[in-house]
């Protein structure tokens, strides 16, 4: 759409601007407040009580293991979704028939079905299998199920937007076998989708709570589980400091994602 279609900025422009700014304020105010609360000595007294990193240190002392576990799960989850999702997306991109669409629809189900239900289903089926219930791998399974659709979607979107079939035929006509085509032509031309999918998987895994709350054990607490714990039982400054840590962890990938989206839009 052309910019400045309404070239004269009348009352309606300003009214909409104020409205949009108010929405933005609604979204940003609590974020700013919680960030501030996380470094305020006493939130009840207010900012005049002074700034401190004491609460962040407290969070580190209490919850460092949840942060590491979340990171470990997130990167393991990324590895799994890359190994599973990229080939699956390729297969779905190459076959455009009704069967492929049905498989695609089916793969999206773990996102549509509430995490609570999936977690319950996993527990009743595999809760008694060996030591799985007490292992972080149990949480990993849930995360892979939940994030895989995002990887598949992101990669599939790029694969269907380029003329993958002709590119591959071009490579094959030059003598390249399947593995060579896949690694030298298919993957490099899907970089942006793989990157977007990866960032999405990392962000979602680090923040996943619906599944994780039922799947975790006292020995396998992830960051969001720790967050819920701290919100419920500790003073607001610690909850805020913990939230601040979470923000810092996801901000880089969110910024990259936005940059990617803009980059894609402006590309010819």
């Amino acid at each position: 759409m052309t910019t400045m279609t309404l070239s004269r900025r009348g009352l309606s422009f300003w009214a909409q601007l104020v409205f949009t700014l108010l929405v933005c304020a609604l979204l940003m105010a609590p974020v700013a407040m919680s960030m501030l609360a996380g470094v305020t000595a006493n939130y009840f007294v207010g900012i005049k009580s002074g700034l401190t990193l004491r609460w962040v240190e407290e969070v580190w002392r209490l919850y460092a293991d949840t942060i590491f576990l979340s990171l470990r799960i997130a990167f393991a989850c990324l590895g799994c979704t890359l190994l599973l999702g990229v080939p699956a997306a390729y297969a779905l991109a190459r076959r455009q028939g009704a069967v492929a669409r049905a498989v695609e629809e089916l793969l999206m189900m773990p996102v549509a079905v509430p995490g609570l239900a999936t977690a319950l289903a996993l527990i009743v089926t595999y809760g008694g299998v060996g030591d799985l219930r007490r292992s972080w791998l149990f949480i990993l399974i849930g995360h892979v199920l939940f994030t895989l659709p995002f990887m598949v979607r992101a990669v599939l979107a790029v694969m269907t937007s380029i003329d993958l079939k002709t590119l591959e035929e071009g490579a094959a006509s030059l003598g390249a076998g399947f593995a060579r085509r896949f690694f030298s032509v298919v993957l490099p031309n899907c970089r942006s989708g793989i990157l977007a999918g990866s960032l999405m998987v990392l962000t979602l895994s680090v923040g996943e709570f619906n599944l994780t709350w039922l799947l975790h054990t006292p020995m396998t607490k992830t960051l969001p589980v720790g967050l819920a714990d701290s919100y419920a039982s500790l003073r607001i400054e610690i909850g805020s400091a913990y939230t601040l840590v979470f923000f810092i962890m996801i901000v880089p990938s969110l910024i990259l994602l936005q940059w990617l989206a803009r980059h894609d839009r402006s590309a010819p």
Binding site: C24, L26, L27, P30, M33, G207, Y231, T243, Q258
Partner: peptide
């Protein structure tokens, strides 16, 4: 950027934002 920032917040964090408000 600010309007789309909370996109990846988990439910627990959203809950905390409501408490902040």
């Amino acid at each position: 950027a600010m309007l789309t920032f909370p996109l990846a917040f988990p439910g627990v964090v959203i809950g905390f934002m409501v408490i902040m408000m």
